[in-house]
């Protein structure tokens, strides 16, 4: 249940989770509330990364300004994505580097924005979660989280406390899955070659579930695995940590009785 004390956290659910996989957002809320946070979800769209990475600085800036206005009042801003949290933490200050009005605000937001698992472990000191999964899982380090925010041990540490879950590392867990946002569509053929390496490595582990902390990468890998006919369940790490695995895995059909 929501608490009345504890840090006030603005959940930046990210556009992909908002649109494609709300379960991840609810898992994040559950984990944050269990850790004593008061979670709010202000009206939001996207961090502006698609514009920023396409060279469209003007739109990236106005979307970033909107983000800063929306989230600056919270104690912390948390996103279930290393890529979107990295956009705010690392790239917003770059985006406003020449603007003395906005730069301090961008820096202030950057300083209190966290990716979900690193927020739980590094800020709140959470070491265990109350969840269970029977089976072997493998974890892919999504690039932005790993290289921009240093996220690597935090999710693994939390996963280690999930009852019944055995983590088997895949070879090259820390290499790119080939998603890269619009890259996956603009250079689909190259992206495909890269994700095929990744799925091969995931399948090799014998895991029944593939996890990561970024929905873009997860959709890419899930889409490739299902096209290749592999039955590995693909989920966001937050779903497993929160113990909320009622929704079918990413890209898997809903059970018939739930179709409407």
């Amino acid at each position: 249940m929501p608490k009345t004390s504890g840090p006030r956290v603005g959940l930046f659910v990210t556009c992909l989770v908002d649109l494609m996989r709300p379960s991840v957002g609810f898992a994040a809320v559950k984990l944050l509330e269990q850790a004593g946070c008061r979670v709010e979800v202000p009206s939001q769209t996207c961090c502006g990364q698609p514009a920023y990475n396409s060279g469209d600085r003007a739109n990236a800036r106005s979307i970033a300004e909107q983000m800063i206005r929306t989230f600056s009042g919270f104690d912390y801003v948390v996103a279930p994505s290393g890529s979107c949290a990295g956009m705010i933490r690392v790239h917003y200050p770059e985006l406003f580097a020449d603007d003395p009005n906005w730069l301090p605000k961008a820096r202030a937001l950057a300083a209190k924005t966290w990716e979900l698992t690193s927020f739980l472990v590094d800020v709140l000191g959470v070491t265990t979660v109350n969840a269970e999964y029977q089976g072997i899982a493998t974890y892919h380090d999504a690039c932005s989280g790993l290289r921009e925010l240093g996220i690597s041990t935090q999710p693994r540490r939390l996963l280690a406390s999930v009852k019944g879950l055995e983590l088997v590392e895949m070879t090259d867990a820390d290499t790119c899955c080939g998603f890269g946002g619009t890259f996956a569509v603009k250079y689909g053929q190259i992206s495909n070659a890269i994700v095929a390496q990744k799925t091969r490595r995931a399948v090799e582990t014998g895991a029944s579930m593939l996890l990561a902390g970024d929905l873009g990468c997860l959709m890419n890998m899930a889409g490739k695995l299902s096209r290749e006919g592999h039955a590995i369940a693909v989920r966001h790490v937050a779903e497993v940590l929160a113990g909320t695995t009622e929704a079918p895995p990413i890209g898997a059909p809903k059970p018939a009785e739930h179709r409407s």
Binding site: V13, V17, D18, L19, M20, R21, P22, S23, G25, F26, V41, S43, Q44, A184, V185, K186, Y187, G188, Q189, S191, N192, V195, M219, N220, A222, G223, K224, S226, R227, A247, I250, G251
Partner: peptide, 23 residues
């Protein structure tokens, strides 16, 4: 509209209602 994607891999379908709507 997503040929660059679906030529090589499936596109997972969204769950349904958006997070913000459900929240």
């Amino acid at each position: 509209f997503a040929g660059g994607w679906t030529e090589y891999r499936d596109l997972p379908a969204p769950e349904g209602a958006t997070f913000q709507a459900r929240w």
